[in-house]
Every structure is written in C-alpha cells, then in structure tokens.
Amino acid sequence: MTTTDDRPLLEVKGLRMHFPITEGMMTRRTVGEVKAVDGISFSVARGETMGLVGESGCGKTTTGRCILRLETPTAGSIVYDGVDIAGLSQKQMVALRQRIQVIFQDPFSSLNPRMKIGQIIAEPMKVHGIEPDATKREARVRELLTICGLNARFADRYPHEMSGGQRQRVGIARALAMNPEFIVCDEPVSALDVSIQAQVINLLEDLREKFGLTYLFIAHDLSVVRHLCQRVAVMYLGRIVELADSDTLFDNPQHPYTKALLAAVPVPDPLVEQGRVFRPVQGEVPSPINPPTGCVFHPRCPIAVESCKQSRPESREIQPGHFVACTQVGLS
C-alpha cells in the first residue's frame, strides 16, 4: 500500500493537448490541429520544485493550463493527490481550485484593471471564505504585499499605476492569499528586475519550506531554473526530451537540444561574451501544426541519423532518474 507521503503529489501520464485549427467564418471547418502537448509524462513530489524549460511555443504554458484544468486535455491522465483531474468537470474541480494556484506569465492581462490592488488580493480570500473578517483580510493584504516586496501603500493603487514588475508581485501575493499547496509558476520572475527577482526567488524558496509548497516552475532563464529547481524537464515541440535532477542536467546534459539550449545562455560578463562566437541552433523552428516525423528535433539535430526521421524516440532512463528521449545518446 502506498501512503500519501511517498506518492507524488502530481503525476502526469501521456498528456496530450491538441487544439483544432478552424477556417472559414461560417462553417468553422477543422483544417488541422496544433499539437501543443503531445504525450508527456512526469511527476512532482510534495515539497519539490520541478522546472519546465524549452523553446517558446513548446507547450509549457499549455501543460500548466491542463494541470490547472483551464484546458481539458485531449488525452492522458493528471493524477493530483490520488485523483485523476483530467476528466473532472469544472464543478468537481471547485474543491481543488484553492489548492492549486497559478502565477501567470503576463502580469497585466491577469489583473482586473478596475480593481484596486488591495481588492484584487482580498477578493479570492473573500470568495473562498479563507478570511471572512474584513479587517483581518486587510491586514493580510498588507502582510502579503510586504512579503512580496511591495510597499503596503500599494493596496490603494490600480494595476495601471504600477510597473510591470510591481504587477507581477501582486500576482504572487494573490496566489499566496489562497494558502495553496501547489503553484504553477509560469514565468513568475521574468518581468522582474534582477534585484527584485532575487528577492522573489528567495521568497519562493522560503514559502516552499515554510508552507511545504510544491511548484511547477516554468521559465526561460536557465540560471534561475538551476538555482530554484530540484529536477528539470526540457520540452521541445510538445514533448519532454530530457528530464533529470538539476545538477545532472546542467553539468551533464545529454540530449542535443538541451546542449544547444545551455550553449545559448549569455553570461553576465562582457569580456567573455564579446569574444564568444555564437552558433544558434541550426535550421527552422518547426511548427506544432506540422511537426517533423520521427524525432521532432531531427531537422536541427547535429547528431541525427537516418532512423531519427522515422521513429519517435522513447524516453530511456540512462542513469537512475535521468531520462533522455534520443536514440543516439550513450551509443558510443
């Protein structure tokens, strides 16, 4: 028998999210589909921070939205704390809503422009009955603002009166207001300047320890991902191509795409950078509408062989906990 504690909090299996592409104003014919997420599996342990990285448009946000059930997956299961939520109705999801929160990529469109910051943070606490007392709620709002590095006086401002980074911190405060256990962090710090970014990263770490939070952390900044995540999954065109613990992934990347990704990170040192010859990943960025056959990375892959064009590589565990979806890794 498994107990609650050694079972992962979240287990995603064979997740697919295909969006239909329609054409024509009247008939809305389906002319194809965007394979935004195309069969991915991973799990996240309680208290862990799992990183999700990869090319723009590879399906990271869509994966997060499926877990939040803002999308209904085309296929696969999403087992959260023992319950498969992939097939739950919106009504059945209500109970879980509070436990799974999100911090969005785009801080502007996610804040109601007509509400003051204080209301924005207090509203969900009120709606979900987390803090019914108005005075306590206000105090909590001030506390949350301060935790997130904002002056408590911002409670009386409107979103448009704040900078992008300030708004992002409001988004974090709002998510924390729900006392969640799992947070999908979709680019939560990319809009922040690095000094505040460091505060927020430390904050996310502190909150994880203090409240036993679990994060799915989506980000492009690989140095932030290395710092914050225990394990990292690398996505490419709707699939996970490599998954390993953070140290292994950054010190010993195996998939050719992961290697290319790491090589593209500029370091904050002008002398190093100005001398570095940069070779971007070869070839066109493929489209999830017409993904390449076989291994989706093969058209751009420096080590591809003929068979890569035909069959989709399965994910293999090359070391305990280190998964790579490439037939050529570890051959020589």
Binding site: G149, N151, A198, Q199, S223, H227, V265, V267
Partner: peptide
C-alpha cells in the same frame, strides 16, 4: 548590488541569492 544578485550559470550554484535588500522607493 545588482550585479551581485544574479544567479549565474558560469559560477557554482549559491545556497541563497543575494538580493538588494530593502523596499524599492516610493
């Protein structure tokens, strides 16, 4: 302070980041 606060891939992982302490000015 700004330069000190960034995590860097070209350096060993730090236990904790070193942010600019304090509140941004009003």
């Amino acid at each position: 302070a700004l330069l000190r606060s960034v995590p860097r891939l070209d350096r060993p992982r730090q236990a904790r980041l070193d942010p600019v302490e304090g509140q941004p000015p009003d």
